[in-house]
Every structure is written in structure tokens, then in C-alpha cells.
């Protein structure tokens, strides 16, 4: 079960991926080579490329079933026992009981989880939340290309999901698009926490008049012609920046990441 017994996976240990592959029920991680790319949030606020080191990303978002196992193993994360500092009143509110879920929920992505809870879960998988740049890098892919962001059809597909309110039942994890890196559901399923979400510099007011850097990011950046394609990605940033670390919503889930490519020797 995730988080109970797991080989520590760290750079320098080989056969790491193999170990995951044979371990029943273990989450699968796919290697992502990293590199430098143009982010919606340039590191210098102007347009310098962001760089990402090789890392591995969980191929599936964490499911209710996964998270239930974690909560059973770590009862301090039960909704009736969690410290209010770490999760708001809606934490896991969609479950039947603190350690019981509807079977139909088992393979749906877990939502109503706080950043703190997501961070703790990933530690249980000897992993961590991905950084924003890691997420953005992996999310730039479509089925066949590492970077599909210039494709209007790809952007349209993302925006179309944004435009639908989430009143319908959430699909199961893995039912959506598998991208170039063999990662599922990077778009079109749920929003996802990232480890450094709190440092995403988007202000509550899109047209913030105070900080020129903010204006760069949010106002000018989003609206200038060269960046207008990034609308779709920027909206993910906007959502994350509206959240506190203890907040939970019906649409925010997560997946985990690990350092290294997994085949270092």
C-alpha cells in the first residue's frame, strides 16, 4: 500500500523504477527529462526561460482509494482528527465516513484535500509535490508532442474544460489523455496542487496597480499578444493562487513527483 512499506527511491539507487513496476498497487512514476522552456511565469518576470532538472512524475493523479489507504495508515489525517490548521472544514467531506468511501469513488481523483495533506501523502510515497515549473513542463505536452502549447486546438481543449462547471461526476483517473511522457490527466480532470504554489505571484486583482512585477505577470503578461496563448495555463495559476494551504475544494487534487530520472547509476 502506498505509504506503508516502500523502498526509498533516491538518486544513486538503481532498479528503482523496476521496484515500482513489480510492487503491487504501487504508484507508477514516469521519467521526464527536464530542460529549459518558456513559462507563463518567467523566473525574471520578463521572459527568461525557466529550467527544470530531470524528474519523475506520478503517471496518475492520486485517487480516493490511494488516499484512503494513506489515511488508514496515518489516522492523524482522518477528517475527524486532522488539525484545523492543516485542513478546512470541507476536507474529505465527500467521503461517507472518515475511513470509508463509496466504491464508485475509489478510482476517482481525490479532491477536497489541502496542500498540507497532499504534501504529507507524497512524503508517504517517498516523493513530494511537483514544483510549478515541473508541472507546467509536463503539462505542455499533448499525446504526441513534448510541447503542444502553440497548437490552438490543444489550447481550445483545455479552455473547454475550464468552461464547464463541475456538476457532473468526475471521471476515474487514467480515463483521460495519456501524454507524450505517459502521464495521464494533466488537463481536463482536476486542478492539482504544486509544492511551491504559495509563491506563484498572481494577485487577487488581475490588474494589480501596486507591484510592477505583478503587472508584468498578470496584466501585461496575460494580455500581450505574444503571451495570449498562455491564457489556458495562466488560469491554473490563478486558481492555485486563490487558495490557502489549508483550503480544500471539489476540484483540486494532486499527484506527486520525485527527483532524478530514475535510472541514475
Amino acid at each position: 500500500m502506498p505509504g506503508t512499506k516502500r523502498m526509498r527511491c533516491a538518486p544513486g539507487l538503481f532498479v528503482c523504477m523496476a521496484a515500482f513496476a513489480v510492487s503491487a498497487g504501487a504508484a507508477e512514476y514516469a521519467p521526464i527529462p527536464g530542460g529549459s522552456f518558456s513559462s507563463v511565469l518567467p523566473p525574471d518576470g520578463k521572459g527568461a526561460p525557466a529550467s527544470v532538472a530531470a524528474f519523475r512524475l506520478r503517471t496518475l493523479p492520486v485517487s480516493n482509494g490511494d488516499f484512503l489507504a494513506f489515511v488508514r495508515a496515518h489516522p492523524q489525517w482522518r477528517r475527524d482528527r486532522v488539525a484545523p490548521l492543516f485542513a478546512d472544514s470541507q476536507y474529505l467531506a465527500h467521503w461517507i465516513e472518515p475511513v470509508r468511501i463509496d466504491e464508485a469513488q475509489r478510482n476517482q481523483p481525490v479532491t477536497h484535500v489541502s496542500w498540507f495533506a497532499a504534501t504529507a501523502y507524497c512524503e508517504g510515497e517517498h516523493a513530494r509535490l511537483p514544483t510549478w515549473y515541473e508541472f507546467e513542463f509536463a503539462a505542455a505536452a499533448d499525446e504526441t508532442r513534448a510541447d503542444a502549447r502553440d497548437d490552438a486546438a490543444w489550447r481550445e481543449r483545455i479552455l473547454e474544460w475550464y468552461a464547464r462547471p463541475s456538476t457532473a461526476r468526475l471521471p476515474d483517473v487514467g480515463a483521460g489523455v495519456r501524454n507524450f511522457y505517459r502521464i495521464y490527466d494533466m488537463h481536463g480532470l482536476v486542478w492539482e496542487w504544486v509544492g511551491d504554489y504559495a509563491s506563484l505571484m498572481v494577485s487577487g486583482d488581475n490588474r494589480d496597480q501596486g507591484d510592477p512585477d505583478l503587472l508584468e505577470f498578470c496584466g501585461a503578461g496575460a494580455l500581450s499578444t505574444q503571451d495570449r496563448e498562455n491564457y489556458a495555463v495562466l488560469m491554473r495559476v490563478a486558481l492555485l493562487s486563490s487558495l490557502q494551504a489549508a483550503d480544500t475544494t471539489a476540484n483540486v487534487g494532486f499527484r506527486c513527483a520525485m527527483d532524478g530520472s530514475g535510472d541514475e547509476r
Partner: peptide
């Protein structure tokens, strides 16, 4: 007031 209330009312779903 700055933003006409915008920055003070930035609200996540379910909040």
C-alpha cells in the same frame, strides 16, 4: 479603494 474590492474578494470555489 484599490481595485474596487477585487483584491479583498478573491475567492476560491467553495469559499
Amino acid at each position: 479603494g484599490p481595485g474596487g474590492g477585487a483584491a479583498s474578494s478573491f475567492t476560491a470555489p467553495g469559499h
